[in-house]
């Protein structure tokens, strides 16, 4: 999917510029993209290191586990098909907690484990189960409390209030998650 889109971007962009005569612009764009990329990496890297460091403390001290356990109770309501106490619930909870704190790469392994575990409950192995879809909705709507990368990028561009976006983000992400879960419920009931 991404491969085709990426190819389409480059082909359509360059061909379009041949027609509009803006070929110098594209030439500069191709040559300058390396500089933009390395600038960005240097901007994001230190802040990412900072948060991964702080979150490592939270995970070693068991604080993330405490959050995950609290969440499991709520999760049994969102995932009615998963039997109570099934291991997939704890993977799902860990994934959500890691996502909440902006730990994308810590969240992914938990998410993959959760999918694997949900697959053991699945009757048709090539078809997505209801619980899997619900889990993906939770994931794609992005339950984030601390969007670390964005805050760091804002700081680098000398924002006066780099963290002012935190609360709006929480509200918007909650709305999208709730909307996604409701639609998921409605469709899955209809299909039954």
């Amino acid at each position: 999917m991404v491969n085709k889109i990426w190819g389409f971007f480059i082909i359509s962009g360059i061909v379009f510029c041949f027609f509009t005569g803006n070929i110098k612009l594209i030439n500069d764009e191709i040559l300058n993209c390396t500089k933009s990329a390395i600038d960005m990496i240097f901007k994001i890297f230190p802040v990412m290191a900072l948060w991964l460091g702080i979150m490592q403390i939270a995970s070693s001290s068991g604080l993330l586990n405490i959050f995950a356990n609290k969440l499991s109770i709520l999760l049994t309501k969102i995932f009615p098909d998963i039997p109570y106490g099934h291991e997939s619930l704890s993977f799902i909870a860990s994934n959500i907690v890691a996502n909440m704190f902006g730990l994308g790469n810590a969240a992914t392994p938990f998410g993959l484990k959760a999918m694997e575990s949900l697959q053991t409950l699945n009757n048709k192995k090539d078809t997505a189960s209801r619980s899997m879809i619900t889990f993906l909705v939770l994931n794609t709507s992005g339950v984030t409390i601390i969007p670390t990368t964005i805050i760091s990028l804002r700081m680098m561009y000398k924002s006066i209030t780099p963290t002012a976006i935190v609360l709006p983000c929480i509200i918007a992400t909650s709305l999208s998650t709730i909307a996604g879960l409701i639609l998921d419920r409605i469709i899955s009931r209809r299909i039954k």
């Binding site: 991404v2 697959q119 992005g142 983000c169």
Partner: peptide, 25 residues
């Protein structure tokens, strides 16, 4: 900023998670 912070990449998550356990449908 708020758009970036409040949503996630649906296509990427779908490809990665479903791909990892061989879900086709």
């Amino acid at each position: 900023s708020v758009i970036q912070g409040s949503t996630d990449t649906t296509f990427y998550v779908l490809t990665l998670y479903f791909g990892s356990i061989g879900i086709k449908k």
